[in-house]
Design a protein around this nucleic acid. Structure first.
Lengths: 339, 339
DNA sequence: GGTTAGCACTCACCACGCCCGAGTGCCAAG
DNA sequence: CTTGGCACTCGGGCGTGGTGAGTGCTAACC
């Protein structure tokens, strides 16, 4: 009973604070929620909650504000993901359904996510490391240059030009293509290094330099280009918080410019299909200690290819944001597997 | 004499204001610059300059601040592009020289420009419309799907998948490849629509649906993908101005998210090799009325392939920014023509 | 005529002091 | 355990007065 009401109070505090962005007091709480008790009782509960570190008072005569810990409890136990309205689902469907190619899907997704959540959206391109090779092709650009083209199941296409010291012979190229093709087609990227290991030994000595150069180049692409691509959207939503709230957006903008930071942010997503939420100081990167990050993976069931999510203030609408992120991830998954 | 000193005063005002970001008064001016006259005289000049609209007073008892018109005069007549130090040039050279592929060049350029100018950098990928086709290739992905690959002289590679209603015959594809290749190789993108116009008539009727589909797809790529790609950098520099200066960065962030706005921004660059500067209200987009945009085109002499530049507050260091933009544009031009 | 010194004037800015009210913690009664 | 009552705290809004930077004007000067 006692414990139960305390949680209800915390929930109410979070909800009110998210709605108003102002410290919430005991009086207002009983007015706006049916708690069935008087302000004085609430005050006792609030004192207890503060004692336990779930809420804090900015200064003596102000109301209380949830702490990161308070939000965590709220997210874990007090909130339920609210389903999107059918209108919203249809809107998403229509908007994403029109996408032509992968670039289009990504850019539409990021815009959609930013618009739905009114926050900064972060979308990662399907990760090569978790994709499969669908096809490999060569194009002879000049006598000494060939372009390698890797077509990936997620729709990505990687290309790279190799310089060779000797002129490229057409037959050799054909041979190489078929052998490489056999070796890597439909194989996961992560297995490529081992699969290409001894491939050069099968060729006659005159061709080996070229073969080695090609293989080296592919390996380079595989390892290097794993620095995945990320698209951002809704950055201007940051300005909104800057004005109302007293938090500087500089560190956040800096974080968003660091591909590495973003990748780790998305990479830390929980391995299961669920939505992952990191609140305030739970984020490793200090610049994001005043923000929360909501992410989800997308791709086929049990084998996600990448992540997407949003970055927003800790006082965000968690249920709404989580449902939006989850829904968008599901839609993107569906669209990508349709190819 | 009279006119001459007034210009000197304006120049001094701009310089001081850019340095301090505070309204500058007559006393400070004579202290920091060798003008050879007394504050009272300066005051007369300032009154005249204000009359003519080059400077303005925020309020009665504050110093003067340059207007957009004042900056314009400063840029046009009073400043000279200051050359970069050799150390800076070497730094640029080293940093950009390491770039491996086009993506790398673009991302390094944008970071470099942001770092040099401490402002927001905007770099446009080489424009297809001003590029030439170097090569066209087809890859049969499945029976009904072929991938078209366009290799462009600026290093870009565009690909697109076409769905065909009928199975694709290998010979037809070879035939199509050679004809298309002959038609478009080394031709500017802008000429492609006319060159492809009647190409389908040369094929036998059974192949025509495929040919038409391919041609349509290429045309689509040519026209649609002309929505060029743009990379941004240094957005966090905006936060700096936000704090010190009283200008909201929201509209600026919004503008930066709009590809269309950015493209127009870069597209309006003056046609010659010089650096183009648009100050405050000279920018068509209202969200950027409080900023200045410094751009330059890059590419071969007399045939630029794209633009790059920076967006910053109107009280920026124009000579420094202009020289940085110009230098970077030149370096990028050089690197791209090296391929 | 252009330049300069002197002077009165204007205001943004800051510091101080004041009050107000929201919100609290505590206590004693229900 | 809950509740009404009450004293207390303290941030924020507001008027007040002082300060100083900067100006425009006028009259004298070269």
């Amino acid at each position: 009973m006692l414990e139960e009401r305390r949680l209800a109070v915390l929930k109410a505090i979070v909800q009110d604070y998210v709605a108003t962005h102002e410290p919430v007091g005991s009086k207002g709480l009983v007015d706006r929620h049916q708690l069935g008790v008087s302000p004085a009782t609430i005050r006792n509960d609030m004192a207890a909650l503060e004692e336990e570190g779930y809420i804090t008072a900015p200064h003596t005569s102000a109301g209380r504000v949830p702490t990161d810990r308070g939000y965590r409890l709220f997210v874990d136990q007090l909130s339920q993901v609210k389903p999107l309205s059918t209108a919203e689902r249809k809107g998403i469907d229509r908007f994403l359904g029109e996408a032509a190619d992968l670039d289009d899907v990504m850019s539409r997704t990021v815009r959609l996510l930013a618009q739905l959540t009114k926050q900064v959206a972060v979308v990662q391109y399907p990760s090569l490391s978790r994709s499969h090779v669908r096809r490999i092709e060569f194009i002879k650009v000049t006598d000494h240059k060939i372009m390698i083209i890797l077509i990936v199941d997620s729709g990505r296409v990687e290309q790279r030009v190799v310089d060779c010291s000797v002129p490229v012979q057409e037959e050799l190229l054909t041979d190489l293509r078929s052998r490489l093709s056999a070796a890597v087609t439909d194989q996961p990227f992560s297995s490529i290094p081992t699969r290409l290991e001894d491939l050069d030994s099968g060729f006659d000595p005159t061709g080996q330099p070229l073969v080695r150069a090609v293989i080296a180049s592919i390996l380079e692409t595989v390892t290097e280009k794993l620095d995945e691509r990320i698209v951002l959207g809704g950055t201007s939503n940051l300005a909104h918080y800057n004005e109302v709230f007293a938090m500087s957006i500089q560190p956040v903008l800096e974080a968003l410019e660091e591909q590495v930071v973003l990748l780790r942010l998305l990479g830390e997503a929980s391995p299961n299909q669920q939505v992952s939420v990191r609140i305030g100081h739970e984020n490793e990167y200090v610049g994001l200690n005043a923000t929360s990050v909501v992410t989800s993976q997308y791709g086929r069931e049990n084998s996600p290819v990448a992540s997407l999510g949003v970055v927003g203030p800790t006082h965000m609408d968690y249920p709404g944001t989580m449902s939006a992120v989850q829904a968008v991830a599901q839609y993107v998954s569906r669209i990508l597997s349709a190819n």
